[in-house]
C-alpha cells in the first residue's frame, strides 16, 4: 500500500504554495517532510488529507485516486493536525465513540485499544473530561490517540511533537515504529530532526513549495556541503530566499 504523489501543484487562491511535487511513500515506511516555515509542508498535507483540491497532479494511495474516489481514499487515512482540533461538546470517551463511528471500527476492540493508548499517554482517568478544557499538549495526545485508534493503513501527521512532554514524544516515536512494523504508510512533517534518522526512512526537504532534496540526512548534507547541522541548512535556505 503505497502513497504516490505525482506532479502535485496547489495553493490558496491564485498563488501556488506548492509546485510540481512528486514523491512516493512505501508501505511500512515513514517519510518526513522538513523545511522552513512557509515552505509548503502543511499545504502538501492539506492536499493529502483531501481538504484542498490539487490544481494539477494526482494523489494515489493503494490504487485509490484521491479525486476520483474521495470517500474510499479518506476512509483509508487518519490525520493528526498541527494544532489540536477537538470537539467542544464531546468528552474524551465520546471522541472515541466518534472515531469508532467515523471509521466503522469494531467497538469492543476499539475500546480496548483506546484504553491501551490512554494508558500510554496517561489519559486513562480523563475519560469523562472535555478535551476542550485540556492543555495544548494533552489535546495533542487526544489527537494522536484518535488517529492511532482508527488504525488506517495511511497515517498523516503534521508537526506531532510540538507541545508534547519528552515522555509523550518517546511514546509517540515507539508507537510510530510499531505502526511501521505493522505495514502502515506514514507521512509526517516535523521540525524535530535530532534523533529522527532512527525512525525516519526518507526525508523530503521542501523549499519554497518544491522538493529541494530527498533521501537520508546525509543526502541533505551532501546537497549543502558547507553546512554541518540541519540548523545550518535552514539558515542557508533562508539566506537564499532573501536573495
Amino acid at each position: 500500500m503505497t502513497l504516490e504523489v505525482s506532479h502535485l501543484t496547489g495553493g490558496y487562491g491564485q498563488a501556488n504554495t506548492i509546485e510540481d511535487i512528486s514523491f512516493t511513500v512505501a508501505s511500512g515506511t515513514l517519510t518526513a517532510l522538513i523545511g522552513l516555515n512557509g515552505s509548503g509542508k502543511t499545504t502538501t498535507i492539506n492536499h493529502l488529507i483531501g481538504i484542498m483540491k490539487p490544481k494539477t497532479g494526482q494523489i494515489i494511495f493503494d490504487n485509490i485516486d484521491s479525486q476520483k474516489e474521495p470517500v474510499r481514499y479518506q476512509s483509508a487515512l487518519s490525520y493528526i493536525p498541527e494544532l489540536p482540533v477537538v470537539y467542544e461538546d464531546l468528552t474524551l470517551n465520546e471522541h472515541v465513540q466518534t472515531t469508532i463511528s467515523a471509521y466503522h471500527l469494531d467497538e469492543k476492540k476499539a475500546e480496548s485499544d483506546a484504553q491501551r493508548l490512554f494508558k500510554i499517554f496517561r489519559l486513562e482517568d480523563k475519560g469523562n473530561w472535555f478535551p476542550i478544557d485540556f492543555s495544548k499538549g494533552m489535546r495533542q495526545k487526544v489527537m494522536i490517540v484518535m488517529a492511532l485508534l482508527a488504525d488506517t493503513p495511511l497515517l498523516i501527521i503534521d508537526e506531532p511533537f510540538i507541545g508534547l512532554d519528552p515522555l509523550a514524544v518517546a511514546d509517540l516515536i515507539d508507537l510510530l515504529k510499531e505502526k511501521k512494523a505493522a505495514g502502515s504508510t506514514i507521512l509526517m512533517s516535523t521540525h524535530v530532526i535530532a534523533g529522527a534518522e532512527e525512525f525516519v526512512d526518507q526525508f523530503l526537504l521542501l523549499d519554497q513549495g518544491k522538493i529541494r532534496v530527498r533521501g537520508h540526512l546525509k543526502d541533505i548534507f551532501q546537497a549543502f556541503p558547507k553546512q554541518q547541522t540541519i540548523d545550518g541548512v535552514y539558515y542557508q535556505l533562508a539566506k537564499e530566499a532573501e536573495k
Partner: peptide
C-alpha cells in the same frame, strides 16, 4: 455547526 471542523473535513462524509 460541524461543516468547517477540520476533523470532520478529513473524514469521509455521507
Amino acid at each position: 455547526h460541524f461543516d468547517h471542523h477540520l476533523m470532520v473535513l478529513s473524514y469521509q462524509t455521507d
